[in-house]
Design a protein around this nucleic acid. Structure first.
Lengths: 223, 223
DNA sequence: TTTATATTGATATTTTTATATCGTATGGAC
DNA sequence: GTCCATACGATATAAAAATATCAATATAAA
């Protein structure tokens, strides 16, 4: 009942480490290396080798003693686990400076993401094309997102606009929201929200700076 | 004693939640509310009330039965725990679209961060002022960062430039790096690195979308 | 004054995640 | 062919974090 049968839901920490593994594996593939050991990955990324082995095992790729894991197999398995094999198309809402930065980011292609259209409330931006993506007025959002069957909404709007825009995207049928604003979005069940919160990240950094005044213990390195 | 450092090192998950508490507390303060209950915060942020209570307790602010916690006291304690009471000055390296977006972000002031200067390898940007911050050439980095005693480096450069720029910043004496590139930085002990990784966040979102149960009807309509 | 109740704070339990340990398989050296 | 070093895989332990439970307390109402 609870579990959708196809892909297992992996532990979130594992999923968070997958992009780093994938990056390294792709680089090795490009260098012509046919296999990689968990120890090598662990050393490169500053992680515990056992942890890496367990993470890789969960991707379904078996390793061979004395050899390691096939880079090609790993690449495919990691991409599949991440859901980056079939590209999801997204609508970006808020073509301010952050929105434009995302529109110009080339890396999304390798990460199964394509931004199909952008929306902004500023009439001056209406019709503009930014990095190959057309900007549309907000009033067209629901209709366009629905017609294009977009799965994902990217929110790069000022905080006071975040919830209303989220509501529009949900009404238009997106199944996930990538939220760059610092507000806690309220969405119906079934819609996934992932927050990309600057404040959260900065908090960890500031607090670490404040507390780690002297280098007494080797603080555990979080990927 | 066990704790040589002045401020206690709080659990990272707690620290990550502090900005959300702080936001809510500040909003309540602005509305003139003198106190707030852990249950109210929990409901607003979608967290377990017990978790909120433990988090708030760790800030050192005591609550009163039937009343809650003083918003003023909470504000002060959270800000202090985060190290946001004394502003740290930062150097931003890489004045591309993402760098500019950060330079234009107003919220940093309330988060104890001020960007004092920016650097970019593009000579065309030399001397430019972006959102009130001057852009300098890379060759001036070490000298300027050292002279201004900047504590923090913000890396918004292409991935191949990340490690060299990090090395420069470390050589100039920064104690922390906020890394927006997807590479694992190698820094000497004592220097704190906090990664702000788009791929990591996107990974969680994609995987959640992949594993989340699809709405039962009308999904096989794309033949 | 008494009582009901909202709310805290402490303790205990469970769950999750990370680390340590040990056995096993494989490919190459001799 | 035998032995050895390497790397995996499984099991066990530990650490961290979230969740549950419950007693204590202070406020407001009766």
């Amino acid at each position: 009942m609870e579990t959708p049968n196809r892909p297992d839901a992996l532990p979130l920490p594992t999923i968070r480490r997958y992009p780093a593994y994938l990056r390294s594996v792709r680089a090795r593939l490009a260098r012509g290396e046919a296999s990689v050991s968990s120890a090598a990955l662990a050393a490169e990324l500053g992680l515990d080798p056992v942890l890496v082995r367990k993470d890789l095992a969960m991707s379904g790729v078996a390793g061979r003693p004395r050899v390691g894991h096939s880079t090609a197999a790993l690449e495919a398995a990691l991409v599949a686990s991440l859901g980056w094999d079939n590209v999801s198309e997204a609508a970006l809402v808020g073509a301010g400076s952050l929105g434009r930065a995302l529109l110009g980011y080339r890396g999304f292609r390798e990460q199964g993401l394509a931004i199909a259209v952008a929306f902004d409330s500023d009439p001056a931006l209406d019709g503009l094309e930014i990095h190959g993506v057309r900007v549309r007025p907000m009033k067209d959002l629901v209709r366009l997102v629905r017609r294009l069957s977009l799965q994902l909404g990217i929110l790069t709007v000022p905080e006071e606009a975040a919830q209303p825009c989220a509501d529009l995207l949900v009404a238009a049928g997106v199944r996930g929201l990538w939220n760059f604003s610092p507000v806690q979005l309220d969405v119906p069940p079934g819609v996934v929200v992932q927050n990309m919160d600057l404040a959260q990240s900065l908090a960890v950094l500031s607090h670490s700076l404040e507390t780690a005044a002297l280098p007494s213990p080797a603080r555990a390195r979080r990927l």
